[in-house]
Computed example of a mutant assay.
Amino acid sequence: MGGKSYYCDYCCCFMKNDLNVRKLHNDGISHTIAKTNYMKRYESPKKILTEERQKTPCKRYFGGYCKFEMYCKFTHYSGKELQELEKLVLAKRTNSRKKNKCKKWPWKTHLQKGLPPSLQSINPAKLKQTDFKHSWG
């Protein structure tokens, strides 16, 4: 263990590098809240939007401070922030539709031009034209 300190990435704090100290810290409410806040960044915007629409605005948060942070049963998003979240969800939805069109006809994508023939997708029209009896060994 040596005299080195342990740094918690979620809480941005140093502590004694001891197993019991780290366990006690990781089980604490402040660490749990900090970890939840960090992990919320990586949730899908669609999920966040549906959850936040169902909640009513938090009077404490908009009044200045809410001690519950992400555990609050009220929303901490303003109307403007919810509108921006809606735009983000719509933009992701249109991007995913564009990507699905490319998946429907994979041999027409521009990505396959640089690939060798063995790695390119099979074109059904060319497959019908192939004479297998005469072209094999």
Results as ranks from 00 to 15, higher is better:
1 M>Q: 13
79 G>A: 10
134 H>Y: 08
78 S>N: 13
9 D>E: 13
39 M>T: 04
42 Y>T: 12
31 H>T: 06
119 L>G: 07
51 E>I: 01
131 D>T: 08
121 S>D: 12
48 I>T: 05
8 C>L: 05
107 W>F: 09
80 K>P: 09
129 Q>V: 09
51 E>C: 05
105 W>S: 11
13 C>I: 01
29 I>P: 01
93 R>A: 15
108 K>R: 11
86 E>V: 09
135 S>K: 06
119 L>F: 08
15 M>Y: 02
87 K>G: 15
107 W>G: 00
17 N>Y: 01
15 M>E: 02
5 S>N: 10
132 F>A: 09
105 W>F: 13
128 K>S: 10
119 L>E: 15
27 D>K: 05
95 N>R: 07
51 E>Q: 10
4 K>T: 15
44 S>K: 06
39 M>Q: 05
21 V>G: 03
39 M>D: 12
107 W>A: 04
119 L>M: 13
90 L>K: 15
62 F>D: 07
80 K>W: 10
23 K>P: 08
49 L>K: 00
106 P>D: 06
38 Y>L: 09
135 S>Q: 11
111 L>G: 12
4 K>E: 13
98 K>S: 15
44 S>G: 07
79 G>T: 10
86 E>S: 12
25 H>F: 05
10 Y>I: 06
122 I>F: 01
77 Y>W: 14
11 C>R: 02
86 E>T: 07
16 K>A: 15
37 N>W: 01
46 K>L: 06
27 D>N: 12
123 N>T: 12
87 K>Y: 12
76 H>Q: 10
33 I>K: 01
129 Q>F: 01
1 M>I: 10
98 K>F: 08
135 S>N: 13
28 G>L: 00
